[in-house]
Design a protein around this nucleic acid. Structure first.
Length: 84
DNA sequence: TTTCTAACA
DNA sequence: TGTTAGGA
């Protein structure tokens, strides 16, 4: 990246994530609550989702659609990707 | 107007 | 998971 030109990456409000992932706001907040994803927070404690956050939601959604529950997804993500 | 948290059906 | 109350 070029710090002299950009400091902020593309982020979107929950409404955009809802449309891009076809998940409800309830699910988006619940999956975060369960530790499946950790979106950034910007102004008044509102979630700011990056493109990578949306891609992760699509992965989470694919597991849900395959009948895997939140606990199972949490295990899968924990055994494959250990991030911050 | 949109989003947030907590809590109840 | 849906939905609502009450607030920022």
């Amino acid at each position: 990246m070029d710090p002299t030109v950009s400091k902020k990456q593309a982020c979107f409000p929950i409404r955009v994530v809802m449309e891009m992932t076809n998940l409800t706001a309830r699910q988006i907040r619940y999956y975060e609550e369960q530790g499946l994803i950790k979106p950034a927070r910007n102004d008044g404690n509102q979630r700011m989702f990056s493109l990578e956050d949306i891609e992760r939601f699509r992965l989470i959604k694919s597991y849900i659609e395959r009948g895997i529950n939140v606990a199972g997804i949490k295990t899968i993500l924990a055994t494959n990707v250990r991030d911050l």
